[in-house]
Amino acid sequence: MNEAGICRGETLITDHLVKVYRGAGRPALNELTLSIGEGQIFGLLGPNGAGKTTAISVMNTFLKPTSGSVTICGIDAVKYPRHAKKLIGYVPQDIALYPDLSVRENLGFFGRIYGLRGKELEQRIVECAEFVGLEGNLDQRVFTLSGGMKRRANLAAGLIHEPKVLFLDEPTVGIDPQSRNLILERLATLKDKTTMVYTTHYMREAELLCSHVVIMDTGEIIAEGTPEDLLSRDPSSTNLEELFITLTGKQLRD
């Protein structure tokens, strides 16, 4: 990262990441090596249990890898997680907001944790709310919001400090097409200043949004490239979903 706080070149690099959970027979992540450039929207696809959430959890410093390294904007995130955390935004699968606090209070709390104060914080709260279309709901308590609005508020909380790298773990689960469309549209506008790692089960979403896609299964990468590249490698698949089924099989995953 240079003095202006801009990451140049590869924003996120993982090198032979391995994560083995205590008592597990096989690694949840097996030698995961990725290189994600600045401004990329990096899709992490895979069936249930493929290791997507583990990969995100290791990359965002929540989990310590069994071996391997993670570098974010030049900072070794395994050795110096505190420094790396300041650069990271995280939008979890769950609505990780306090239901009894208003949107403004939730965003204010997260902003203060990132060191924002006073007018700067107020400004960011309003900007983030506008970004996700919740400017009219800032003083509404989260539990009174609709499912789609909660998802958007969840996204806003991950953006409050303008992260360099944003991890999005299935951010559009269980919402209506309108809210999903808004989220995807808005995320696409962020790519100039934010690198994104995105997991989803909606292949169409990944096809539309992601500049680069990795398909994982059993903790390993089984295909990698731009959506167009991947489809060109298998002429029998007309879209990413068909390719995904071809690569991961039709067997049900728990």
């Binding site: 959890s57 965002n60 410093t61 929540f62 505190r82 955390k85 300041k86 990271i88 995280y90 979890p92 699968q93 769950d94 609505i95 990780a96 907001l97 306090y98 997260f110 944790i113 990132y114 060191g115 909380a157 991890f167």
Partner: peptide, 13 residues
Amino acid sequence: QTGMLTRLFVMPL
């Protein structure tokens, strides 16, 4: 249970 703890642990807190 709500994933808030995970979010907090990913933050500089």
